[in-house]
């Protein structure tokens, strides 16, 4: 198993954000983490990205407990724009390139061009959609083995969304890269995710292969989700 999350708990002051989350992802899979806002998705992502520590439980990525070593192979795309607003687009990527092994600057330029992103503008002046595109450039400019996308399509206008989806199909290193993406809008990821689980109040309430769930329940993931949420 490429990613192993074993009985992870996370407590914030006065509130449990995650309550015993356990799941596995095998290499090359695209896993969808579904759930409403505040279900604990972002917390889970931060823990897998080794940005924050769990209160209890352990996580392995590629057989290594999360930490410095796994940060070398994990691209973490948080929900919000994590880049320096005062940096120019290219400056930001040059900065990041210094930290990641195998960063391909030509690829970065190619992706920026494909996404119609200005490379000489300050990141702070870009629109939300453009900032979301930047995250994709970051994810696919270097050979990250695990890409964590927290709400990659949240609040983005349709043309930008289309570009992001196309990039995803174009750049996803089939068989080598594992992707975990989260969303509260299930319809956004319906066609991409192979395995899904639903997170509700910090617990996994349903999990399985997307196509198998459709077969069993005779409805779409959206339908299943609505049933659980309701």
């Amino acid at each position: 198993m490429f990613v192993q999350v074993n009985d992870v708990w996370k407590k914030y002051p006065g509130k449990w954000a995650l309550q015993g989350v356990t799941f596995d992802v095998s290499k090359g899979k695209v896993l969808g983490v579904l759930g409403e806002n505040g279900a604990g998705k972002s917390t889970l992502f931060r823990i897998i990205a080794s940005v924050t520590r769990p209160s209890k439980g352990n996580i392995m990525v590629d057989g290594i407990p999360v930490g410095l070593e796994t940060r070398k192979i994990v691209a973490f795309l948080p929900e919000i724009n994590p880049f320096y607003g005062w940096m120019k687009v290219m400056e930001q990527f040059e900065f990041l390139a210094a930290f990641y092994e195998g960063w391909d600057m030509d690829k970065t330029r190619e992706l920026l061009k494909f996404m119609d992103l200005p490379d000489n503008d300050k990141i702070g002046t870009l629109s939300r959609g453009q900032q979301a595109k930047l995250k994709m450039v970051f994810a696919f400019s270097w050979p990250a083995k695990l890409v964590l996308m927290d709400e990659p399509l949240g609040g983005i206008d349709p043309p930008a969304r289309k570009k992001i989806i196309n990039t995803f199909f174009h750049e996803f290193r089939f068989g080598e890269q594992t992707i975990i993406m989260s969303t509260h809008m299930v319809s956004e990821v319906e066609e991409f995710v192979e395995d899904v689980f639903y997170l509700k109040k910090g617990k996994i309430v349903l999990s399985g292969e997307a196509d198998r769930l459709r077969e069993e329940k005779g409805t779409s993931l959206v339908g299943i989700f609505e049933e659980i949420a309701g």
Partner: peptide, 9 residues
């Protein structure tokens, strides 16, 4: 695609 049926099928 019809999201209510298995996509691979």
């Amino acid at each position: 695609l019809d999201p209510t049926r298995p996509i691979y099928l």
